[in-house]
Amino acid sequence: MIQREAVLTAMKEFIATHFPTVPSDHIESLCAGDVIRQSLELVEFVLHLEERLGVEVNINQLGESLIVENFGALADELVRLSEEGGLESGTPV
């Protein structure tokens, strides 16, 4: 099961690297879709989370949350999925 703090840390890492002008200290309230605007960036974001958290993230399961929710809610969703066994451990590729 993944921890919320670990998810947020991974998210902040990605934002700090790819969107250095975005204040990563307050990402929880930021809408993911306002920051990540390209499909390539979105996939790189998901792959980064997979690598950092050691789980497989199913983009289809997260669905539209990836662009309509804020990062805090996304982190909650990932934690919820991991509690329900919806995230497999180990990055597949």
Binding site: L42, E64, L66, I67
Partner: peptide, 12 residues
């Protein structure tokens, strides 16, 4: 449409 917006994110 929310789902489609996700499928169509970005410039393509």
């Amino acid at each position: 449409l929310d789902l489609i917006r996700l499928f169509l994110i970005g410039s393509r």
